[in-house]
Design a protein around this nucleic acid. Structure first.
Length: 586
DNA sequence: GCCGTTTTCGGCCCGACTGTTTTCAGTCG
């Protein structure tokens, strides 16, 4: 069993224990353990053999033993027994908003409810409202939750969430009562998908802000509204939360609602070790009775989040890095990178025109790149095997190359256009064009577009990609796994081996910035870049507007700890030309 | 179940909101 599968088992054990009413800290230990295992870099088998698995924080004796058993045998009796004792319907019930382990247990023990169907039945028969601790409103909420659970539990692409959040944030900032407003949560951290929107506002009078928020045109339902906190449901089931705090509390709250759970736990522990208590209210002496409440007397006045980090002896941690991995240890050592910024990009290489499956002409794309102030634009239409995308055969490709050369000579646009191709990697790892054709291009983006039944054969897919990377004409590898976020899993591929092959052959790996892809995943970038892989952030644009996807790519690159130096398309035109020329001469 | 610059035992982040309660439990983030 591999690392991801084992992590999933640990995660499930945690959930099952929770439903069993186990000690919540034990439950958390399993969830933490699952994350710790997922975050582990390198080869799991090697770690087990070297007996160093327990060195990872969060993995103690018991978890190491269970992970080892699962790794070696693929089975775990403890897990099987646990699973056998809990109806699968109870796990499903956790997905209903408002239902947690305690309520589910009560429903199961007192009404024999063990599935969503029986739960619906019990609600309809008014049996749920009669249970102690339940009532008519709870029963109604459960029914609504079951009806809408798919829409409500769905996550949303970062790009979509961003565009839903921007007008609300702009509107909040315009209100007279609002002194400061920000969004927080996974949106601010730049996670590839977002569960809900979090808005944070500093204002002395929350009332008008709350009212404005709940009355927004996009609001379909107000699900909660108190004095300082409100939740609403927007179109598409996207939930948005607003919190209003006093101005002196703003940066404490912003930090609190931005960090992942793990990051916050680590920050609080760090504060405690210094005799301080950190909460969204402020940073107070540990024994101060006002701590953690509205009267909190903070030991510092935070004028930025940086002030909070500074007080705890840390260099400021950018929001994208606050996932609770090792960013705090690195911040303590002053070893955080200066992350890449949107303004660092000078162009991009993987884009399409209407010659294949794009919606705009070469000239329209060049004009859009000019408008963005880019120095260069790489056109890489599909190759002939991608007939579903009207891939270009040799003749059309060479005609396009000629057209690009003429366009550059005409000086019609400021931007320099590079002639490339997104060349299919065929089933056996060969490329879709002969070397004589590839030699006439400025660069080659190699890409897998069909799985040929290799979707489930990791070794075959890995070999296919590695072989392509060994081809002297290939410049960069496109969308490593072919995943489509929230739609389709990527094919199985040994990322580690692909990274090694890229390093060995001096090939770039793309960070495909299309919001539906964001592939290679940010979780691999730090490690890959450390090994020497050069990143290229490509929008995979099929229209002029699509070029802007690079903004999503930069977010994800930042999450992957990438600096400007590690991203190829931050380089100026002169450097890029020289690099590509040298690569083609090899 | 994990962890240790007071601890190998006894902690483990903590507040808002809701709905159910007459003072709080459960859920959520």
């Amino acid at each position: 069993m591999d690392k991801a599968a084992i992590a999933a088992v640990l995660e499930e054990i945690g959930t099952l224990l929770e439903l069993q009413g186990e000690n919540p800290f034990k439950v958390r230990a399993y969830h933490n353990g699952a994350r710790a295992l997922s975050a582990l870099e390198g080869d799991l088998g090697g770690r087990i053999a070297a007996n160093t698995l327990g060195d990872a924080p969060g993995l103690g004796e018991a978890l190491v033993e269970k992970i080892t058993t699962l790794f070696q045998t693929g089975r775990l009796k403890y897990y099987d027994d646990l699973k056998a004792g809990i109806p699968p319907g109870l796990v499903e019930m956790l997905g209903v908003p408002g239902l947690g382990p305690k309520k589910i247990r009560a429903l199961h023990e007192q009404l024999g409810v063990d599935s969503l169907a029986k739960l619906t039945e019990a609600c309809t028969a008014d049996k749920v409202a009669a249970l102690p601790g339940f009532g008519a409103k709870t029963q109604e909420k459960i029914l609504a939750g079951i009806r809408n659970r798919e829409a409500y539990s769905r996550r949303h692409l970062w790009w979509d969430a961003w565009h839903a959040a921007e007008p609300i944030l702009a509107g909040l900032r315009k209100l007279r009562e609002v002194e400061q407003a920000e969004h927080a949560g996974s949106l601010r951290r730049g996670l590839e998908t977002v569960g809900d929107l979090d808005f944070l506002v500093a204002a002395e009078k929350p009332g008008p802000v709350m009212d404005w928020f709940c009355a927004q045109p996009g609001v379909e339902a107000v699900t909660a509204k108190g004095d300082t906190k409100a939740s609403v449901r927007l179109a598409d089931g996207l939930q948005a939360d607003l919190r209003v705090v006093p101005v002196e509390q703003f940066y404490f709250a912003l930090h609190h609602f931005t960090g992942s759970k793990d990051h916050n736990v680590k920050m609080r522990s760090r504060a405690l070790a210094r005799g301080l208590s950190l909460s969204e209210w402020g940073l107070t002496p540990k024994d101060d009775p006002s701590a953690g409440g509205p009267g909190a007397r903070s030991v510092i006045r935070a004028r930025s989040e940086d002030d909070i980090f500074k007080k705890l002896g840390l260099h400021p941690v950018p929001p994208e890095l606050r996932e609770g991995l090792d960013e705090i240890a690195r911040a303590e050592a002053g070893a955080l990178p200066t992350l890449l910024d949107e303004s660092d990009l000078r162009g991009a290489f993987h884009n399409h025109t209407s010659a294949s499956d794009g919606r705009a002409t070469l000239e329209e794309m060049a004009a859009a790149a000019d408008a963005l102030g880019w120095e260069y634009l790489g056109m890489a239409d599909h190759s002939k095997s991608s007939f579903q995308a009207h891939g270009l055969e040799e003749e059309r490709l060479l005609a396009q190359v000629e057209k690009i050369r003429q366009l550059n000579q005409s000086k019609k646009f400021r931007v320099h256009v590079f002639a490339g191709s997104e060349v299919d990697i065929l089933k056996d790892g060969a490329l879709d064009f002969d070397d004589s054709v590839l030699a006439q291009l400025d660069y080659v983006v190699a890409a897998v577009h069909n799985r040929y039944g290799q979707g489930a054969d990791e070794a075959a897919m890995t070999q296919r990609i590695v072989r392509a990377l060994e081809h002297p004409r290939v410049t960069m590898l496109a969308h490593l796994t072919g995943r489509l976020l929230l739609e389709r899993e990527g094919y199985l591929v040994n990322v580690e081996r692909v990274i090694d092959a890229a390093v060995a052959n001096g090939k770039m790996i793309e960070l495909n910035a299309n919001p539906r892809r964001l592939d290679m995943d940010w979780r691999h970038w730090r490690h890959a870049a450390d090994k020497g892989v050069l990143c290229v952030i490509n929008p995979d644009a099929h229209s002029p507007e699509g070029l802007e996807y690079v903004r999503a790519g930069v977010r994800v690159g930042r999450k992957g700890w990438l600096t400007k130096e590690k991203v190829f398309n931050t380089r100026g035109l002169k450097d890029v030309r020289k690099f590509l020329k040298r690569a083609q001469e090899k």
